[in-house]
Design a protein around this nucleic acid. Sequence first.
DNA 1: AGTGAATTGTAGCATTGGCTACATTTGTGT
DNA 2: ACACAAATGTAGCCAATGCTACAATTCACT
Lengths: 147, 147
Amino acid sequence: MSGSSENPFRKVRADHAQETAEDYVEAVSDMVHRIGECRVRDLAAHMGVSHVTVSRIVSRLQEEGLIETEPYRPVRLTPTGEKLAAMSRRRHEIVEQFLLAIGVPAEDAARDTEGIEHHVGESTLAAMENFLSSSHRPAPTTPEAIE
Amino acid sequence: MSGSSENPFRKVRADHAQETAEDYVEAVSDMVHRIGECRVRDLAAHMGVSHVTVSRIVSRLQEEGLIETEPYRPVRLTPTGEKLAAMSRRRHEIVEQFLLAIGVPAEDAARDTEGIEHHVGESTLAAMENFLSSSHRPAPTTPEAIE
DNA sequence: AGTGAATTGTAGCATTGGCTACATTTGTGT
DNA sequence: ACACAAATGTAGCCAATGCTACAATTCACT
Ligand SMILES: [Mn+2]
Ligand SMILES: [Mn+2]
Ligand SMILES: [Mn+2]
Ligand SMILES: [Mn+2]
């Protein structure tokens, strides 16, 4: 009842079908918050694809109710898109911090996170969060040092 | 010079382009070792797709030199395919053991590993291996206990 | 206002990997 | 041997996502 399917490969394919949406809304959200707006060309540069690919994907995401835009205008997120972006960003950050915490170099952690994040389920995310909060303080802090 | 590209998303797409090959040769290798041969129907059941999809993918992997087969006959691996299978299985096992080690329930670990494995680079794999060998002994062992 | 560069959209093509329906081959069992 | 069931292949469809080439629009600057 929790996974989308009994077969692991079906789940992976379902994750991949969601992947583009997650990366795009996360990128739109970040750009809007950082530079005020998000243009097709910004997304193309960010994703490393042509503007044509972005344009078509934006259309699809608009049909799916995640994005709003008019021709030749910037791209914005719908409330639904914002929610997906918030979820994606949170998961992305947890995964990346986790990889850093186990000693993966920053550049490699950033790279691997971009793919790994979409396959991290609830249980795995919880395990990563738990690991992070456990190994949060290096050594000097003890429970008694709070007060 | 280590990653396939500067842009993380390009790397993810490159990983996805390799993903089918890795999962299929790993499956072929396992089946050959377990039940003596690997048929198209076995792969179809394992991957959760129709035999048609398997048949086309097997053709492509044969053109790529990973698989050998004749019409209506079982599927075998070429030496190149065996090497890729060995690499994939090793990485798969490390990732899965790692998820189990950080407390992910077995079923979820198996599921998430199927997707995550393809995005785990050298550094991340090394960090996971290191974590596994470090946290190998539950608690009683301390550095001084070696001698 | 007009012009030219930048941006975005459209047309058309390729690849991958899903599918159903149907054809062919294999092989089992009588 | 033959007939039928299982396995595999083929034809033809679809969706997603990559691309180049070209058309349309916007925008900044004179
Ligand atoms: Mn992300
Ligand atoms: Mn991503
Ligand atoms: Mn896999
Ligand atoms: Mn993936």
